[in-house]
């Protein structure tokens, strides 16, 4: 049963990944990307990494892929035009790819693993039958890797400052809602009672 599920998820992941780069319509590409993420999440569940599977769906599908979708729909880019040189550059691309592949084969053929690999591992994974995935990850991130965790937070802060600094500009002539002014407004500021003599008007 698990084998069947694995082959199903794996085939669909690869197939949808191929569709991401070959689909003509970019919106379809992004939708295939989302489908690919879902199948990858399925593979994680099969591995017993349920937390990673949920994170993949929440972060990548929920935020990143939807953001992609917006960008693709908002920007008017003619991707077929961008792909025009494809056939012309294909031979060069294949040559470079083959050379790289051969190099990688040479590197990994002579690959030696460090014999003491198991003993030097920095953070020992807690036994999975005693605590859940989420708890194990949490206790590592907030103790052993607290430095890396905080540093990543600082990097995100810099990204936020940068995004605001480079794009935010104070515009003139915008009517903003200021609640305090609205609340502080008294009846006298807004309405006056005028005594109107009958039949004359103001």
């Amino acid at each position: 049963m698990i084998a069947l599920a694995f082959w199903l998820f794996a085939t669909l992941t690869v197939a949808s990944a191929v569709m991401v780069i070959s689909a003509r319509n970019t919106v379809h590409s992004v939708l295939f990307l989302i489908f690919c993420f879902f199948n990858a999440a399925g593979l994680f569940v099969l591995l017993g990494a349920e937390f990673l599977a949920m994170i993949l769906v929440v972060v990548y599908v929920g935020a990143v892929a939807v953001l992609f979708l917006f960008v693709v729909m908002m920007l008017d880019i003619d991707f077929t035009e961008l792909r025009q040189g494809f056939l012309r550059y294909l031979p060069v691309g294949i040559v470079v790819g083959v050379v790289l592949c051969v190099e990688i084969v040479f590197v990994f053929k002579t690959w030696i693993l460090n014999p003491d690999m198991a003993t030097v591992a920095a953070a020992v994974t807690p036994p999975l039958d005693q605590i859940s995935n989420t708890q194990a990850l949490g206790s590592l991130i907030y103790t052993h890797y607290v430095y890396a965790f905080q540093a990543s937070g600082l990097i995100l802060l810099v990204a936020m400052i940068g995004a605001i600094m480079l794009t935010h500009r104070a515009r003139v002539g915008v009517r903003k809602q200021t609640i305090s002014t609205q609340v502080a407004r008294k009846r006298e500021d807004a309405v006056t009672v005028v005594k109107v003599p009958t039949g004359e008007g103001i």
């Binding site: 040479f106 590197v107 990994f108 002579t110 690959w111 030696i112 693993l113 460090n114 003491d116 690999m117 198991a118 030097v120 591992a121 920095a122």
Partner: peptide, 25 residues
């Protein structure tokens, strides 16, 4: 990391101190 199984400089120094020469990787 793929060779040594660790990212710590201290452990890396020990590992490379004991092996004669690095592999091509």
């Amino acid at each position: 990391y793929g060779f040594a199984g660790t990212t710590s400089f201290t452990s890396l120094a020990e590992i490379f101190g004991s092996t004669d020469s690095g592999s091509i990787g």
